[in-house]
């Protein structure tokens, strides 16, 4: 699925990650933690091919990212749902169309998919906000909309970068619940977060592994939760 083999990544003359190996097993649930600037976002970007390692090899669904052209990358992105901390929406389109964007760009914008879209928006609790523009949403609503967009193509993997970074505790629990539900549907989840409370709260709902980036290396942070 996603495999990092002894990779390193350098940025601005300094090495951010070194000798990192990691294999994301199908159906697994992982947390990735570490201090700010430790390379969590970089690690996630390496996991969906937005960055190419300076050493080592990254394989996405069996393909080496160095051998992938732009179209290959685009097709891979449809198999990996990504939730960014800043969400990244098209502000001129309403929530409904933003969430449906992956369908639009892949030519799967059918009536049936529109029906799924309605269900999906209801599932993330945004059924009543479908016509709102992204700047009109609260932080929690934006994160839920981003999550809906990330899963609308029914990807095998969902990567989330600090999905609870800008929301209150109650909303972070709601988002966690949605991600756990996705995992129970068979999706593979990897969440980068510095919020240890979120990780602790997750142990009541899912069997997750916690990884930690420290000193440019990736470590297993502790026993399985």
């Amino acid at each position: 699925m996603i495999e990092l083999d002894n990779i390193a990544y350098s940025y601005g003359g300094g090495e951010l990650l070194s000798e990192v190996s990691f294999k994301l097993a199908p159906g697994s649930f992982h947390f990735l933690t570490g201090p700010s600037g430790s390379g969590k976002t970089t690690f996630l970007k390496l996991c969906y091919g937005a960055l190419t390692p300076t050493a080592g090899r990254v394989q996405l669904f069996g393909k080496d990212v160095r051998e992938m052209d732009r179209d290959d990358h685009a097709m891979t992105r449809r198999q990996i749902g990504v939730v960014h901390q800043d969400c990244q929406f098209l502000d001129h389109l309403p929530v409904r169309e933003n969430v449906a964007l992956p369908l639009t760009v892949s030519g799967k914008d059918s009536l049936e998919q529109h029906s799924n879209l309605k269900e999906l928006l209801t599932w993330v609790g945004l059924g009543h906000r479908a016509s709102a523009l992204p700047p009109e949403l609260s932080g929690g609503e934006r994160q839920r909309a981003a999550l809906a967009r990330a899963v609308i193509m029914s990807p095998d993997v969902v990567l989330a970068d600090e999905p609870t970074g800008n929301v209150d505790w109650e909303m972070s629990q709601r988002l966690l619940q949605l991600l756990v539900e996705l995992n129970k549907m068979g999706k593979t989840i990897l969440i980068a977060t510095h919020d240890m409370n979120l990780i602790r709260a997750a142990k009541h709902h899912v069997q997750a592994r916690v990884l930690r980036i420290s000193g440019r290396k990736l470590q297993l942070a502790g026993a399985d939760l």
């Binding site: 685009a74 097709m75 891979t76 992105r77 990244q88 992956p102 760009v105």
Partner: peptide, 16 residues
């Protein structure tokens, strides 16, 4: 550029 970045993030091909 931001629109292009979002489109690429969600799997839009450059031709699209």
């Amino acid at each position: 550029a931001q629109v292009i970045s979002v489109l690429r993030l969600i799997g839009a091909q450059d031709s699209y």
